[in-house]
């Protein structure tokens, strides 16, 4: 009978938490999103561990300031936590959805605050052959993807890279890009189209369904 009165050992909570985290880390992105939708904090943590670096990388590239980039990253994951219902698996991969949120948030921040003056130590897209420090993972797939992106970008002309960069990381419309570069809108449109088509063709072997996505970028 006295054994009945024994409380659950304190260390069970930590054990439980770590087991939950380990289980979550093995789940596919879509499953993690479903669990986030049901309020599982360990699922959000797993998504953060998987994509936090990627999100911060994108945010930093856009806002150009480490503190602001971390703010964007926080906002992105809080958005995931509070608006996970808005994710639709049929509309694309989780990583793409996260990047979309990040870009929107970062670009909004860029446009709406007076940070414009303190920002923008903007590094250009890395040159072909430039040392790639993205991640420390030695996963073969991740390395191959990074190399493929570097190769694809190296296949673009400087002008093509510029329009992609201004659109992707600057959030500029085609009209804004045309004004900024002093070129006709039609030229910008066709240049964007050619650049994106080139990237699409070169990166197609790396398009994969979400369930096969890397644990790390």
């Amino acid at each position: 009978m006295p054994a009945l009165l024994a409380s659950v050992p304190d260390d069970r909570a930590d054990e439980y938490s770590s087991v939950q985290a380990a289980r979550a880390s093995r789940l596919a992105d879509a499953e993690l999103m479903e669990r986030v939708r049901h309020g599982e904090e360990t699922a959000l943590s797993a998504l953060y561990d998987r994509y936090g670096g990627l999100i911060l990388t994108v945010a930093l590239r856009i806002v150009g300031d480490r503190d602001l980039a971390e703010e964007v990253m926080q906002d992105t994951f809080l958005r995931v936590w509070n608006a996970s219902d808005t994710y639709r698996a049929t509309r694309g991969q989780v990583s793409g959805w996260l990047i979309g949120i990040t870009r929107n948030r970062a670009i909004d921040m860029l446009r709406s605050r007076q940070h414009k003056t303190r920002l923008r130590e903007r590094t250009p897209l890395p040159e072909p052959g430039e040392e790639d420090t993205f991640g420390t993972s030695d996963e073969t797939d991740a390395i191959a993807t990074r190399q493929a992106v570097a190769d694809a970008l190296s296949g673009l002309s400087m002008a093509q890279r510029q329009v992609v960069e201004l659109a992707y990381y600057g959030g500029l419309s085609q009209s804004e890009i045309a004004r900024q570069l002093g070129e006709p809108l039609g030229t910008i449109k066709s240049r964007t189209r050619v650049a994106m088509e080139h990237l699409r063709a070169d990166l197609r072997p790396h398009f994969r369904p979400d369930d096969e996505s890397d644990a790390r970028p």
Partner: peptide
């Protein structure tokens, strides 16, 4: 969808930042 995949992959070309 394929262009969206391009969008998803482009950040792999950036120097990595660790939170």
């Amino acid at each position: 969808r394929e262009y969206e995949d391009v969008m998803r992959l482009l950040p792999f070309g950036l120097p990595h930042a660790e939170p």
